[in-house]
């Protein structure tokens, strides 16, 4: 009798273990992931949503997850997005991936989601609520490496022109502080002037054209992406020699760079964040649902295009779009393994 009982116990235990293993391997096939996005009005966001949609559709077809729906608020306002997140909680999603309108104003809604047992992953526009995961971009570094690059190219240093983004926006502050730190590191450089290009070619062109007459000789232009082509046009229109303009992975910027390279061997670099970071966020959420141990703070690598990769980078960029890298499940796993 005693033996019988112990055998029974052992089998049960074994069965449980086997079941346990199976569950953790195919755990997420019934899980639903939602994307809460606050804005869709520029080429970067459009590419971001497209990457998410393509990737989520594939994942659903492969049976990895049950749903990967994307929601964008009608207006770019934190209160709207907070309400949207609460709606997603009600709709019973297992994970919510957020590109946030505000780093702080959504914290209440995010906390509600966490309390309801939902996995919350924020990326690009991250939230500060401790219960959420953050896939942040090191924007400061993005500013710093521009000056580092210029320092390698220009031994004598000189005057720089800075094109900033939109005043009062977190990303603009971060990249700007990175550029300031870079200039502090390389004392041979000096920022002669700065304008706001709002990450838009036409605005940048107008702003640069306006400030150029009052500028000394400019050796380099540090940018935030989406403004390099406009700056190049403004320099050409003013009849001034083209300095080294850092590009931001937009198709028009890369095309212009390629033309200059073929015509006169122009050299520069290009840096921005790949909109495909949304797919990384998707897989991070899936991995957390799968029961993997993922650190709360993740830094996403940015996408840098150097002189040698220009042709390849241009070939991978759609006209009117931004250079992109999309993550597959294996890429995401490799990335997570590298940070752990």
């Amino acid at each position: 009798m005693r033996i019988c009982q112990s055998i029974l116990l052992a089998t049960t235990a074994l069965a449980l273990t086997v079941a346990g293993i199976q569950v953790s391997a195919a755990d997420t096939s019934d899980k639903r992931i939602a994307l809460s996005n606050n804005y869709a009005g520029n080429s970067w966001r459009q590419a971001m949503l497209k990457s998410w949609g393509k990737n989520a559709e594939q994942a659903v077809n492969d049976g990895v997850v049950a749903a990967g729906d994307a929601f964008t608020t009608a207006e770019n306002q934190p209160t709207e997005q907070a309400a949207q997140i609460q709606n997603l909680i009600l709709q019973g999603y297992d994970a919510i991936v957020i590109n946030a309108a505000s780093p702080t104003a959504l914290n209440g809604a995010v906390k509600e989601a966490c309390d309801a047992g939902i996995v919350v992953v924020s990326f690009d526009g991250v939230v500060t609520e401790p219960c959420a995961w953050r896939i942040a971009v090191d924007f400061k570094k993005m500013g710093e490496i521009q000056v580092d690059y210029l320092s390698g190219r220009l031994a004598d240093g000189g005057e720089l022109l800075e094109i900033r983004g939109l005043a009062g926006v977190f990303v603009d502050d971060e990249i700007h502080s990175g550029i300031e730190a870079g200039v502090a590191n390389h004392e041979k450089f000096n920022i002669a002037g700065s304008v706001h290009g709002e990450w838009t070619q036409t605005v940048a062109q107008k702003a640069v054209a306006g400030i150029l007459p009052s500028m000394p000789e400019i050796v380099g232009v540090v940018t935030q992406g989406g403004d390099g082509y406009g700056a190049a046009q403004a320099f050409a229109a003013a009849g001034r020699p083209t300095p080294i303009i850092i590009m931001g992975n937009r198709h028009d910027e890369l095309t212009w760079w390629k033309e200059q390279k073929d015509a006169n061997g122009y050299e520069t670099m290009s840096v921005s964040i790949a909109p495909g970071v949304s797919t990384l966020a998707f897989w991070v959420a899936q991995q957390i649902l799968d029961g993997q141990d993922v650190p709360k703070e993740l830094i996403v690598p940015f996408l840098q295009i150097d002189q040698a990769d220009l042709e390849e980078g241009l070939a991978n960029t759609e006209p009117g779009g931004v250079s992109n890298v999309e993550y597959s499940l294996d890429d995401a796993k490799a990335y997570l393994a590298s940070v752990q």
Partner: peptide, 11 residues
């Protein structure tokens, strides 16, 4: 919201 933003309630 637990914390604020200068543009939190423009709507």
């Amino acid at each position: 919201a637990t914390s604020a933003d200068a543009n939190i309630a423009l709507r």
